[in-house]
Amino acid sequence: MKPNPGDILLVTRAASVQFAKPIRFRVIRALDWTTYDGWAWLDGYELDARGEAVARRTIFVQPAGLRRPPHVRASRARAPPAHTGTQPRRPTCGNGVDTRR
C-alpha cells in the first residue's frame, strides 16, 4: 500500500515490530528519505478512539504491512454549532470581570 496524505491507517506489528500495540495513524506525508528497500518514513498523527489527533509522529514502517482500519469516517469536517437563539457569553479574564470596553 502506498500511503497518501489524509489516509487513515492501522499500523500493526506487520508494519514494524515497534507496533506490538497497534495505533491508528493519519498520514501527513511520506518522507522522501533514503532508507532500506521495502521501508518508508511517514509523517503524521497518532489518533485516539474518536479519531482525534493525540500526538504528531514520524514512523518507520513497511508499507506492505499497513492496513486500513474498519469503520473509518470519510470526512473529518465538523458541523458548525447550531444557533441556540441566546446571546453569546461575554469574554472574561477568568475572575468574572467583563474584558470588553
Rank of each mutant, 00 (worst) to 15 (best):
P81V: 09
A64Q: 14
H71E: 12
P63S: 11
A14I: 00
R89V: 10
V61L: 09
A53D: 08
L10W: 08
N4M: 12
T84V: 10
G96K: 03
M1C: 13
V61K: 05
Q18C: 11
L31E: 15
V72Q: 12
A77C: 02
T86D: 05
K2M: 14
D98V: 00
T92P: 03
I8N: 04
V11W: 08
Q62Y: 03
A14T: 04
D37T: 14
R100A: 04
V17T: 11
R100Y: 05
D32M: 07
Q87K: 15
T84E: 09
F19E: 03
R67C: 07
R89W: 14
A30N: 09
R78Y: 07
D48M: 01
G38Q: 13
K2C: 11
R78F: 04
P70I: 05
V11R: 06
A64H: 07
E52H: 06
R78L: 13
P80G: 04
K2S: 13
T86S: 08
T84Q: 08
A15S: 13
D37R: 14
I23Q: 00
D98W: 01
E46V: 08
I23D: 01
L42I: 14
P91M: 06
G44R: 05
N95Y: 12
S16F: 08
S16G: 11
V11P: 12
T84L: 11
W39A: 05
R26W: 06
R57S: 09
R68V: 14
R89C: 09
W41L: 08
K21W: 05
A20D: 11
P91Q: 13
V27D: 07
V27G: 10
R78P: 02
Y36V: 15
A55D: 14
V61D: 08
Y36I: 13
P22K: 04
V27W: 06
I8K: 09
N95V: 15
K2P: 15
R73M: 07
I28E: 05
R76E: 07
F60Y: 15
N95F: 10
D32Y: 07
Q87N: 09
R13V: 12
L47F: 06
T84S: 10
K2H: 15
G51F: 02
T12H: 04
V11D: 13
T92N: 04
Q87W: 07
